[in-house]
Amino acid sequence: MTRRTTMHPDLTDSRAQAPFFSTWRVGTPLRQRQAVEAIAETWERRPWPADGLLAYHVYTGHDTSTLLHHSRWVDEQAFEAYLKTQRQERVDEIDTAVPGIERLWLGRYRHYRSHVPADRAGRVPGCIVIVDIEFEGPDPERQRAWVDAVVEALQSEPNPHPGGISAHFHLSTDGTRVLNYAEWESAQAHLEALAAPGDGIGSATARWERVQTWPGLKSTTVSRYDHALGLLPD
Rank of each mutant, 00 (worst) to 15 (best):
V150S: 10
V150R: 10
V150H: 13
V151D: 10
V151N: 13
V151E: 14
V151Y: 09
A153C: 07
A153T: 11
A153H: 02
L154W: 10
L154C: 07
L154E: 07
Q155F: 13
Q155R: 13
Q155N: 14
Q155C: 14
S156D: 09
S156M: 11
S156I: 06
S156P: 06
S156L: 03
S156W: 08
E157P: 13
E157H: 13
N159Y: 08
N159D: 04
N159K: 03
P160I: 05
P160V: 09
H161L: 02
H161C: 14
P162T: 06
P162M: 14
G163L: 06
G163F: 08
G164K: 05
G164A: 09
G164D: 10
I165N: 06
I165S: 11
I165P: 05
I165F: 15
I165A: 11
S166N: 06
S166H: 10
S166L: 02
A167Q: 11
A167F: 05
A167M: 13
H168T: 06
H168R: 11
F169D: 04
F169G: 01
H170M: 07
L171G: 09
L171V: 05
L171W: 05
L171E: 07
S172Q: 03
S172V: 05
S172H: 02
S172F: 00
T173M: 06
T173L: 14
D174R: 12
D174A: 11
D174G: 13
G175Y: 03
G175L: 07
G175W: 03
R177M: 00
V178G: 05
V178N: 00
V178K: 00
V178H: 00
L179V: 01
L179D: 00
N180Y: 04
N180E: 02
N180W: 01
A182V: 10
A182T: 10
A182E: 14
E183F: 14
E183Y: 15
E183H: 12
S186G: 11
A187M: 02
A187Q: 09
Q188S: 03
Q188P: 02
A189Q: 06
A189E: 03
A189D: 02
H190S: 00
L191H: 04
E192A: 10
E192W: 12
E192F: 15
E192L: 09
A193E: 07
A193R: 06
A193D: 00
L194T: 07
L194R: 06
A196Y: 04
A196G: 06
A196E: 11
G198M: 01
D199L: 11
D199Q: 13
G200S: 05
G200A: 08
I201V: 04
I201E: 00
I201N: 00
G202S: 04
G202F: 06
S203A: 11
S203W: 07
A204E: 04
A204M: 10
T205S: 15
T205L: 13
T205I: 15
T205F: 09
T205Q: 11
T205K: 15
A206L: 09
A206K: 14
W208I: 02
W208D: 05
W208A: 12
W208V: 03
E209G: 07
E209L: 09
R210V: 01
